[in-house]
Design a protein around this nucleic acid. Structure first.
Lengths: 136, 136
DNA sequence: TGAATTGCGTTACTCTATAACATATGTAAT
DNA sequence: ATTACATATGTTATAGAGTAACGCAATTCA
């Protein structure tokens, strides 16, 4: 839960983080917005600004391929610069896998071409175990 | 260049492919649209439909983290299900790296959790060799 | 030559994200 | 406390990315 950081969140940051925490999958900024209208959130920017901070804190990840966001379910994300996401295209659940070895190999592959890596995005789409049992 | 497929392209598909080929980096659909207004392309859908086909043919890749598109510079992309992109955040040039080993490892990592992978997106952001020489 | 598929053109619309500007709130030093 | 500074907030308007739905044209291909 990363409570040490959670306690320092501002009102809007806390609202957005809680909304993402309660969701069982990724949420778009506008879905979050709709869910928080009763709490005084009225404009997209209020959500995006909170998300920017939460991303900076490492408490939330952005899924580029879905234009949406998930809370970090990984225990020590600060030390992990890169996550691997497995996104089920049937139920939209997201597995968050960490693998530093893989990230190191990617960096090596890039270094061989003189490219210095800052951030890495790895997103896999497919079927989670539950859904692949149903839809073979 | 993948001429065998190029020769089969329809008018709009050819226009979009040529526009991407001439660019030295990724283009958004709307940038392509603006560049093709003189050629009879007037609506976003005309571009998006062409892009869909080109993606299907494996002649174009989509960069999720930039919402934009590049031509495939890799010789035999049909046999490569997954590309690794290194995107320079300074000059916007894109290196296209192929590594089946890495993709296999990712699939193994996912399989261990019962997830069956269909597509994989790997995008690295950083500085290319030219730009990292200038901005240390 | 007709039927089926694929592509084209257009209008309107939804979803995603940011710019610009004014106000408020917290924080730290004097 | 009071000033000064950084950070967060609220609001309006707008830009950028992508799709739905409709009708028509062109191309296969039987």
């Amino acid at each position: 839960m990363k409570l040490q950081q959670n306690s320092k969140l501002t009102k809007n940051q806390g609202l957005v983080y809680d909304a993402l925490s309660k969701a069982d999958g990724p949420l778009s900024a506008y879905t979050i917005l709709d869910g928080l209208r009763d709490h005084g959130i009225r404009a997209p920017l209020q959500v995006y600004r909170a998300l920017d901070k939460l991303l900076e804190f490492g408490m939330v990840h952005r899924l580029e391929s879905l234009n949406s966001f998930v809370v970090c379910r990984h225990p020590d994300c600060e030390t992990q610069k890169t996550m691997v996401f497995a996104i089920c295209e049937s139920c939209e659940n997201v597995l968050e896998l960490a693998d530093d070895g893989l990230v190191g190999q990617l960096a090596t592959l890039a270094d061989a071409r003189g490219f210095s890596v800052k951030t890495t995005t790895i997103e896999m789409s497919g079927l989670c175990s539950d859904c692949s049992a149903v839809q073979p």
